Amino acid sequence: MDAEYRAGGLPDPEDESGEFASEVPERRAAEVDAAGHGERLDRWLTGLAPEFSRNHLQALIERGCVTADGKTLLKPALKLRAGQRVEVELQPTDESRAFRAEAMALAVVFEDEHLAVIDKPVGLVVHPAPGNWSGTLMNGLLARHPAAATLPRAGIVHRLDKDTSGLMVVGKTLEAVTALSRQIAAREVHREYLALAWGRAEEAFVVEQALRRDPVSRVKMAIAPANLGKPARTDVFPLGVGEVKVGVQSRPVSAVHCVLHTGRTHQIRVHLTHSGHPLVADTLYGGVPALGLTRQALHAARLSFEHPVTGEALALVAPLPADMAAAWAEIGAGALPEG
């Protein structure tokens, strides 16, 4: 389960223009007393600004935010002298900047006052997290729909990996977010993917294997005994097989249509690898790059569900992005079945 992010609860985030108000960093200063003589700069600053972690204060030092008697100090381990007047510009942490509106172009395939369906591009991170505190889909949603700041996760009810493209639904009201979350938990939101995988997959098959976090590599998921993991099922249907040159040899690559019955992290990637068909260019799970692809060949192509407010049956389709479309054409694969 992902950590819960909530975009609300922040002090008055917008000014009258609808843009996020600028913050003037607080400046805090003090003179080093006899007890602080010879102490490391970063350690001494924890006394001046105890609400910040030592790691964040070290980052501020390295950014040039700390001065002593007007001279910039850049080394956290610098030893202080009694009588120095140290001043620090207390810039906010990266985490505190995560829930900021950032205007970005989003491909919206359906929208009304209750929800929106986005065609997420490759490379767009969904939630703010270490290493990606800005430039995420959440930041874009906050700019597009300011009321998202009052919703859990800014209305995001499910996710795609950074390098997986395709359809995602987001709620625009608390009523819609709650109803969509319940539909997903009840497996009433149907998600279908197109993928290119190594090996010859010429008949339909089902992978029903529980998943858990890999006990060796925390960035991976792994097959688990049923009593230790979360149940997961993927149905896989063939759409074509082609031959691809890898060095001097030819290897088969299969185009497949994957239907999720559960939505576990990395589910298709792990299930196909377990079946001997790692995704093309999914290097995390042993898939060799080919066909010009530099990211896992996985696209969320179809999303269908009942509108949480109106009850209308919605079925949205997103065409393959350019990189996968070119690879798909190269092996002569068939189209996503209708319906």
Score class of each variant (00 low, 15 high):
residue 177 V to Y: 02
residue 36 G to Y: 08
residue 197 A to H: 04
residue 160 L to G: 06
residue 205 F to T: 06
residue 331 I to T: 01
residue 15 D to N: 12
residue 107 A to G: 09
residue 4 E to F: 14
residue 258 C to E: 08
residue 226 A to R: 15
residue 27 R to N: 12
residue 115 L to W: 04
residue 137 L to V: 10
residue 295 R to G: 01
residue 51 E to H: 13
residue 239 L to K: 10
residue 107 A to R: 14
residue 317 V to Y: 13
residue 209 Q to L: 08
residue 196 L to M: 05
residue 162 K to I: 03
residue 309 V to Y: 04
residue 2 D to R: 15
residue 305 F to E: 01
residue 278 P to Y: 05
residue 43 R to W: 05
residue 304 S to D: 12
residue 313 A to G: 11
residue 220 K to W: 06
residue 152 P to W: 09
residue 26 E to W: 01
residue 132 N to Q: 14
residue 43 R to Q: 11
residue 28 R to N: 08
residue 281 A to H: 05
residue 331 I to W: 00
residue 112 D to F: 00
residue 110 F to T: 08
residue 268 I to E: 11
residue 207 V to R: 10
residue 194 L to C: 06
residue 186 A to Y: 03
residue 261 H to C: 01
residue 172 K to D: 03
residue 278 P to L: 04
residue 116 A to K: 00
residue 317 V to H: 14
residue 283 T to V: 12
residue 219 V to C: 13
residue 55 N to L: 10
residue 102 E to G: 07
residue 138 M to S: 06
residue 319 P to Y: 10
residue 322 A to K: 13
residue 281 A to P: 01
residue 116 A to R: 00
residue 161 D to Q: 08
residue 11 P to N: 12
residue 10 L to D: 11
residue 75 K to R: 12
residue 229 G to R: 08
residue 90 L to C: 02
residue 218 R to T: 04
residue 222 A to G: 09
residue 260 L to P: 01
residue 24 V to A: 14
residue 310 T to L: 04
residue 248 V to T: 13
residue 283 T to Q: 11
residue 61 I to C: 02
residue 63 R to T: 08
residue 118 I to V: 11
residue 68 A to S: 15
residue 191 R to D: 02
residue 68 A to G: 15
residue 44 W to N: 05
residue 137 L to N: 13
residue 247 G to I: 00
residue 193 Y to S: 09
residue 264 R to Q: 06
residue 192 E to T: 07
residue 255 A to N: 04
residue 35 A to M: 13
residue 158 H to R: 00
residue 244 V to F: 00
residue 145 H to C: 07
residue 326 A to W: 09
residue 263 G to F: 07
residue 30 A to D: 11
residue 208 E to R: 15
residue 88 V to C: 10
residue 321 P to C: 11
residue 93 T to A: 09
residue 91 Q to L: 15
residue 249 Q to F: 10
residue 126 V to C: 02
residue 78 L to E: 15
residue 328 W to K: 03
residue 182 R to Q: 14
residue 186 A to C: 03
residue 45 L to V: 02
residue 88 V to R: 10
residue 263 G to P: 03
residue 134 S to E: 12
residue 271 H to G: 07
residue 212 R to P: 00
residue 35 A to V: 12
residue 11 P to R: 14
residue 318 A to N: 10
residue 201 A to V: 15
residue 280 V to H: 06
residue 246 V to T: 07
residue 69 D to A: 07
residue 237 F to G: 03
residue 24 V to N: 12
residue 25 P to W: 06
residue 128 P to Q: 07
residue 74 L to G: 13
residue 37 H to P: 01
residue 115 L to K: 06
residue 83 G to F: 10
residue 55 N to H: 13
residue 294 T to Y: 04
residue 300 A to N: 09
residue 239 L to T: 06
residue 189 V to M: 09
residue 97 R to D: 10
residue 198 W to S: 03
residue 232 A to T: 04
residue 337 P to G: 08
residue 96 S to C: 03
residue 39 E to N: 05
residue 37 H to N: 13
residue 164 T to E: 12
residue 107 A to W: 02
residue 242 G to I: 01
residue 58 Q to F: 08
residue 80 L to P: 00
residue 166 G to P: 02
residue 339 G to V: 03
residue 279 L to F: 06
residue 245 K to Y: 00
residue 288 V to N: 08
residue 167 L to A: 11
residue 4 E to N: 14
residue 112 D to P: 00
